[in-house]
Write a protein that binds this DNA or RNA. Structure first.
Length: 422
DNA sequence: AATGCCGGGAA
DNA sequence: TTCCCGGCATT
């Protein structure tokens, strides 16, 4: 009927003023709710703050477990920015210790204590995740100059480079000799304790306690299986890549693309952890078996910046491998250490893709959950998330298009309605 | 088709 | 910064 003119209204059209007066809910209001949205853009940049979530992903979004423990752990692409007096070469040396150093921040001791405690527990638990557990991390045969990040990430201490050769005297995740043996059973005790403590969930039934990890060379017509990450890397490096030690520091993760972790479950194991993906399971590669075919010999596309240390599996051919390992256990285990936080909408924050980086310009309350590096990469390279249409009727529907003057400003501007928030 | 709203551009 | 709209996703 009274169609609004096609021509644009003035900047301060009476219409706009009218509606604005009736619609206090404008941008700033929502911004107040903006929480950690920016975290969704976490990348592996120097000085990056990593927020560890002690809680498992709950697809239903029903658990109230989210706790942020930010320990100023940084991820460095290659070497820590800190130049603190570490006499060792920052990029090539790394101390393996049995404790995790959570650097103190400037916060009050009370905050720090809890956060540090929690962070340490989480880190400890993560590093002890058996499936990710490299059975032979402290490979004494490994050259001491072996590329720090690579080994660390290999050891499923994962993605972080916590204290890898940085100022902390005991920076590395507790991948110590005590649990480094190939036959060493996973540290289930801590794991379960952690879960119960952190997530307040009943201890899951018998699970992943009999997994044996091995590493299979994916180089065509090789298929060599080693129980040591380091050994596997060296094998690939020397045998297939024909590289010497001088490359170790720079190609720390290239070898990673040429081997994969294979885990063998004991026969008496009830069953592997329940698959998260309900899709066509038979075809999807699982961590329980080696990939059906080796990857192409050509190096895969380099990982994105945020994934520079993604390791332990070929990214394409065994694409499901790495992430699947995580996801399959994510229902019961703390997020592995390589996981990076991304903001994910809360149950009230409905988005099309719950795993996409929550570019919540609206600033709706967002919970935080962890996503894997690979997942994060997908997020960053996938289509931007779009808000799912809410249940609430918006101005357009409430007032009708013929009463556009009663719409909230955002609706009039074809923006997200600010009056009828979901 | 209607609706919601992102992204971008004009004023 | 305000205002508007093309265009896309979703319903």
């Amino acid at each position: 009927m009274d169609m609004l003119p096609k021509t644009r209204l003035g900047k301060r059209s009476p219409l706009g003023a009218l509606v604005s007066s009736t619609c206090p809910a404008t941008g700033p209001r929502i911004d107040q709710e903006t929480g950690e949205t920016s975290m969704s853009r976490v990348k592996g940049h120097p000085g990056l703050k990593v927020y560890f979530q002690c809680g498992q992903d709950d697809p239903a979004g029903s658990s109230d477990h989210v706790d942020l423990m930010h320990s100023d752990v940084s991820i460095w692409p290659s070497s820590p920015p800190s130049s603190s007096s570490s006499s060792a070469s920052p990029s090539c040396s790394r101390s393996v210790s049995s404790s995790i150093d959570v650097p103190r921040s400037q916060r009050s001791p009370d905050e720090v204590d809890m956060d540090e405690l929690m962070a340490a527990m989480v880190l400890s638990s993560l590093s002890c995740s058996p499936l990710l557990h490299s059975p032979a991390l402290p490979d004494t045969t490994a050259p001491p100059m072996d590329c720090g990040g690579g080994e660390l990430s290999d050891s499923s201490s994962g993605y972080w480079s916590v204290g890898h050769s940085n100022r902390s005297p005991a920076p590395s995740p507790p991948m110590t000799e005590s649990d480094a043996g190939p036959t060493t059973p996973p540290d289930e005790g801590l794991d379960m304790e952690m879960e119960q403590m952190l997530f307040e969930e009943p201890a899951p039934r018998k699970r992943r306690n009999s997994v044996k990890a091995a590493f299979k060379c994916l180089w065509p017509s090789c298929g060599k299986v080693l129980t040591s990450v380091v050994g596997m890397k060296r094998h690939i490096r020397t045998t297939h890549l024909s590289r010497g030690a001088e490359h170790e520091r720079c190609s720390r993760s290239e070898e990673d693309f040429y081997y994969t972790e294979i885990n063998q479950w004991d026969q008496q194991q009830q069953s592997p952890p329940l698959p998260v993906h309900s899709g066509p399971a038979p075809s999807s590669p699982s961590h329980t078996s080696s990939p059906p075919s080796p990857p192409p010999p050509s190096p895969p596309s380099p990982p994105p910046p945020g994934c520079s240390v993604l390791s332990r599996s070929a990214p394409s051919s065994s694409s499901g491998s790495f992430w699947q390992v995580q996801s399959e256990h994510s229902y019961q285990a703390p997020p592995p250490s390589h996981m990076i936080i991304a903001a994910v909408p809360s149950p009230t924050c409905r988005w099309t893709a719950p795993l996409t980086s929550c570019q919540s310009r609206q600033g709706l309350a967002c919970r935080v959950r962890s996503v894997s590096v690979g997942e994060q990469w997908l997020q960053q390279h996938s289509a931007p998330c779009r808000r799912v249409r809410g249940e609430a009727k918006k101005c357009r529907k409430v007032y009708g298009i013929e009463h556009r003057e009663q719409w909230c400003t955002a609706c009039r501007w074809k923006k997200a309605c600010q009056r009828f928030l979901d």
